[in-house]
Design a protein around this nucleic acid. Structure first.
Length: 268
DNA sequence: ATCCAGGCAGATG
DNA sequence: CATCTGCATGGA
């Protein structure tokens, strides 16, 4: 086990983990979390001065938490948009994680029309049932491992009507991953993902953003839609198009700040 | 009880 | 192309 340190500035553990981009984490104390990704695990602690990351695979998590990216410049760019100032100020420290594409695909299929608490439970059970057993936790199952699941087994986990989507995706995913990895743009990857059952516009955007780190992406869920809808921006698709063209390659970052602010700043 | 949650598929204008 | 409806499940 090794420990790496990262300056607190521009890294708010809690905001980053709870803003809905990732589902496999646990709070273990004040400013302390455990995070799981693929077959890896790390412990995070805000010690007041900096962030401690304890893990066997520091290089993996340095990439995962996007630690080599300067968020200061992203934040200052976003602050140039008047309508974002409050949300960015509020959520300063949120980072967009570089998650595993396969894990992101399965996770966000589960997320559709679902709430975060229940999504976390379903994903935890998926790992326990189909993932490799590690020391004290379970890895996220590969597509091949999930191919061994039957639809009725998946329903037992609580997937409901999404069980069939997971079943189908386990079989098609390896080919899809290969294609989206070589996609040149967010929009190209998005279109490939939209051919899959269970993946619609919002889920595709989440996969593109959190799994491929292509930030010209703007997932429009119920929260974002409520926050952005106007007389003319009156469908999710219109909201999506408008903010993609407005924020460009920073759209994904903007979206996270708005989402976090909408959910937390004013109690719903 | 009805509504909602990081929506989507399928059917219909 | 756009809009409408049913949907597993569990918590508020």
């Amino acid at each position: 086990m090794q420990t790496v340190y990262y300056p607190k500035n521009n890294f708010d553990i809690e905001a980053t983990l709870t803003c809905g981009q990732v589902f496999r984490y646990e709070k273990v104390g004040e400013g302390a979390y455990v995070v799981y990704s693929k077959g890896h695990r790390c412990e995070l602690k805000d010690n007041g001065e900096n962030i401690e990351i304890r893990t066997d695979v520091p290089a993996y998590f340095e990439n995962y938490f996007d630690l080599s990216t300067d968020y200061g410049s992203i934040v200052s760019t976003l602050m140039g948009f008047e309508e974002l100032r409050e949300a960015v100020e509020y959520g300063k420290g949120i980072r967009i994680l570089r998650q595993d594409p396969e894990e992101t695909v399965f996770s966000f299929i589960v997320s559709a029309n679902n709430n975060i608490k229940r999504i976390q439970g379903i994903i935890a059970r998926l790992c326990e049932r189909y993932g490799d057993k590690k020391d004290g936790y379970y890895a996220f199952p590969s597509a091949e491992q999930l191919q061994r699941a039957t639809v009725s087994e998946l329903k037992e986990i609580g997937l409901g009507y999404r069980a069939q989507y997971i079943y189908d995706t386990a079989r098609t995913l390896p080919g899809v991953i290969e294609k989206i990895r070589s996609a040149k743009t967010a929009d190209e990857a998005r279109k490939i993902l939209l051919t899959q059952k269970g993946i619609g516009p919002k889920v595709a955007d989440c996969i593109v953003l959190f799994g491929l780190h292509l930030t010209r992406s703007y997932p429009v869920d119920t929260w974002i839609f409520k926050a952005n809808a106007t007389e003319t921006l009156n469908t999710p698709q219109r909201v999506h198009e408008h903010f993609i063209s407005r924020y460009g390659d920073n759209a994904g970052f903007a979206q996270q700040y708005i989402f976090h602010y909408a959910r937390n700043a004013r109690e719903r």
